[in-house]
């Protein structure tokens, strides 16, 4: 075990982690806002809305992320003349743009399915009560269904955040310098295979459990009304007038 090489490579690895976190955050936010309308569409009784959402979700959840990345990164080359004509080639030429686009589309599909589950889990009585109060359509969704559905979807969503965070490591295959990418370059230069990869793995491990801890805290805060009140044994024994 060569400790010096580990210490020397930590700054570069953390820089790689910066890109990993950046990719994760941007795709999460964009995927989230794509997924809300998609989730509502997915549950529409009108097939004109539900069929495209269903196809989209099926494609992105049914194929490996690596195929999706290659499809956009290498595949766009097949349409180069067209993309140049409409001025989009500048973007598709960049590995960063292709990686980000794929991650956004991918996480949006998974998040859509999570929101669908959340929306379907909203107790029907609450929807009926809202209808009885005169709410309908957009108001019903905004005030009653979505807030409740998002809270119900939180545990599943925290899993998706962790999976997305980990799957960003695939962008290293198309030359991006995320944590995995940096580790691969250092290993190719120094041949200290397991020192570097295990250090990188530990960094991923710490951040993963950090993310899970944050979500557990948020879940705890959001479910206060569902828990029994904390009872102070001394107070409980006192007689209340």
């Amino acid at each position: 075990m060569d400790w010096q090489i580990i210490v020397d490579s930590i700054p570069a690895l953390l820089e790689g982690m910066g890109l990993t976190v950046q990719l994760t955050l941007i795709s999460l936010v964009a995927g989230f806002f794509l997924a809300i309308p998609l989730g509502v569409m997915r549950l529409s009784s009108n097939p004109i809305f539900s069929a495209p959402a269903l196809g989209y979700v099926f494609f992105f959840r049914g194929t490996p992320l690596l195929v999706q990345i290659f499809l956009i990164y290498y595949g766009s080359g097949q349409f180069r003349p067209f993309l140049q004509e409409v001025g989009l080639w500048e973007f598709f030429r960049e590995a960063y743009f292709c990686a980000l686009l794929t991650l956004i589309l991918n996480t949006a599909a998974y998040t859509t399915e999570i929101f669908r589950g959340g929306i379907q889990a909203v107790p029907h009585g609450e929807v009926e009560a809202a209808r009885a109060c005169g709410m309908s359509g957009f108001t019903l969704y905004r005030r009653i269904i979505l807030p409740k559905a998002l809270r119900l979807a939180l545990p599943a969503y925290s899993n998706e955040v962790v999976f997305l965070f980990q799957s960003t490591s695939l962008v290293s295959i198309i030359t991006l310098m995320d944590l995995t990418g940096v580790a691969r370059v250092i290993v190719a230069r120094t041949f200290d295979v397991y020192e570097i990869y295990i250090t990188a793995g530990l960094i991923y491990l710490v951040v993963t459990y950090g993310i899970l801890w944050v979500f557990r805290t948020v879940e705890f805060k959001l479910s206060g009304h569902l828990r029994d009140r904390a009872v102070d044994p001394v107070e409980a024994l006192k007689l209340h007038p």
Binding site: S169, T180, Y197, I198, G201, Y204, L205, T208
Partner: peptide, 11 residues
């Protein structure tokens, strides 16, 4: 479960 599959594969 805390480490990406790709990195585990490389390790």
């Amino acid at each position: 479960r805390g480490i990406p599959e790709l990195l585990l594969l490389l390790i």
